[in-house]
Computed example of a mutant assay.
Amino acid sequence: MTEPTGTAAGADNGEGHGGRPRCAVLDDYQDIARTLADWPRIGDRVETRFLHRPLPSHDAVVEAVGDCEILVVMRERTPFPAALLDRLPRLRLLITSGMRNAALDLAAAARNGVTVCGTASNSEPPAELTWALILGLARGVTTENAALRTGGPWQQTLGADLHGRRLGVLGLGKIGTKVARVGAAFGMEVAAWSPRLDHDRAAGEGVVPCASLEELLETSDVVTVHLVLGDRSRGLIGEAELRRMRRTAFLVNTSRAGIVDQAALLRALHEGWIAGAGADVFATEPLPADDPLRTAPNFLGLPHLGYVTRRNYEGYFGQAVENIEAYLAGRPVRELALPGGAGAAG
C-alpha cells in the first residue's frame, strides 16, 4: 500500500492544489478513516491525506506532515509535546479523538497559535472490552480456543467463578461505573476506591467504598483499573501493591499502562503473585515484537481496542470533518481546555 509521506516543512507555502489548506489524518492503522466520514464534503476546500503507519520520531512527523495546516490525530498514538509543536510552524488546527489527550501539550499549542479541538467519545466500548478481558481470563478462553482450533486437549482449564466474588474497581468514573454495573449483574460484590471517590455516589450505585487502595487490592478477586493517568496515578500499582493482591486474583487494565509498573507486573506473572492479568494498553504502542509481555504466563493482551468500534470511529471522524468546517468558517468548536488534574477516567 502506497501512502503520501508529505513534504518537509519549508518546502513550499503550505497550500495544496488550488490554494487549499493541507490536512493529514494520522495513525489510521486500519486504513478505514476515509470510509467512516463524509470527507468529500470538504474536498473542494481542504486537501486531505491519510497516513496508516506509526511515525516513530519527531523528525518523521515533521517530514510527513510539516506542510499541513490541519492535523487529525487518534488519541495518544502520536504525542505532540512542545518540542514537536515548535517544529510545525504551519500547523493551525489540531483535532484529537475524544475530549482528553494527555499526549498533547495544550499550553505549547496555544503558544504556537494552534487551536486544539476534540470530539465526543462513547464510554460503553472500553467498558465492554474490560469485560472481554475479565471473562477471557476467568474462563481460560484463549487457551481453550487455541486447543480447539489446533486439535489439542479437550478441556484444559478450570474456570474461576465470578458470581459471589468481589470486583474491585479502581476509579468510579463513566467507564468504571459501567463496569461496576455489569459486575453487579453477574452477582459480584462490587467495591471501589480512587483518590477522590464520592462515597455517596458509590453507595447510590450499590458499590462498597474502600477506605484505601490497600483494602481494595487485598479483598478483591478481580481488580480493574479505570483512572486517568496523572502525577498521582502514575506507578500507583507497583510491586508492593501487586503482592497485596490475592494469588487467585486477576488484574485488568484498560486505562493507561503507566498506572501499573510493567516490570513489577512481569515479575508478578512469572512468580505467581496473582492468577493472571489482562491489558489493552502498553507503555509503547504498537507493542514491540520482542516485548516480554507478549510471552508472559497467564497474560491476556489486546492491541488497545477499547475505543475501537464503528460507532466511536464514525463519531470521531464525522466530528473531525465538522470541526474542520467550523475552523474554516472562523468558529472553532469543541476546543480543549487545559487539564485540571487526575481523577477517575471518563
Rank of each mutant, 00 (worst) to 15 (best):
232 R>L: 01
243 R>P: 10
223 V>T: 14
242 L>N: 09
227 L>A: 15
237 I>D: 08
223 V>W: 08
245 M>S: 10
245 M>H: 00
222 V>P: 09
233 S>A: 13
235 G>Y: 03
219 T>S: 15
218 E>M: 13
216 L>H: 07
234 R>E: 08
237 I>C: 07
223 V>P: 09
218 E>D: 06
225 V>Q: 10
243 R>H: 10
227 L>W: 11
218 E>K: 08
232 R>P: 02
245 M>P: 02
243 R>I: 00
217 L>D: 04
228 V>P: 01
216 L>Y: 05
240 A>K: 04
244 R>P: 11
231 D>I: 06
236 L>A: 06
229 L>I: 09
223 V>R: 08
236 L>H: 02
230 G>P: 02
237 I>L: 03
232 R>T: 00
219 T>G: 09
238 G>S: 14
230 G>I: 00
243 R>F: 06
217 L>W: 11
243 R>K: 10
241 E>D: 09
233 S>N: 14
230 G>R: 02
236 L>F: 04
229 L>Y: 11
235 G>F: 03
233 S>W: 11
215 E>N: 10
234 R>I: 07
224 T>C: 01
239 E>S: 12
237 I>Q: 02
236 L>W: 04
219 T>V: 03
216 L>F: 09
220 S>V: 07
238 G>P: 03
217 L>M: 14
225 V>L: 10
241 E>V: 05
219 T>K: 15
244 R>S: 14
221 D>Q: 07
224 T>H: 00
223 V>D: 00
232 R>N: 07
220 S>A: 15
219 T>A: 13
221 D>P: 10
226 H>Q: 05
237 I>E: 03
223 V>Y: 06
226 H>I: 02
240 A>S: 01
227 L>Y: 12
224 T>R: 05
235 G>A: 01
239 E>Y: 02
243 R>C: 10
237 I>M: 04
240 A>R: 02
231 D>K: 14
227 L>N: 12
233 S>Q: 09
226 H>T: 06
219 T>C: 09
224 T>P: 06
221 D>H: 08
233 S>L: 10
228 V>T: 15
242 L>V: 08
216 L>E: 07
232 R>A: 12
218 E>S: 15
216 L>G: 07
240 A>F: 00
225 V>R: 07
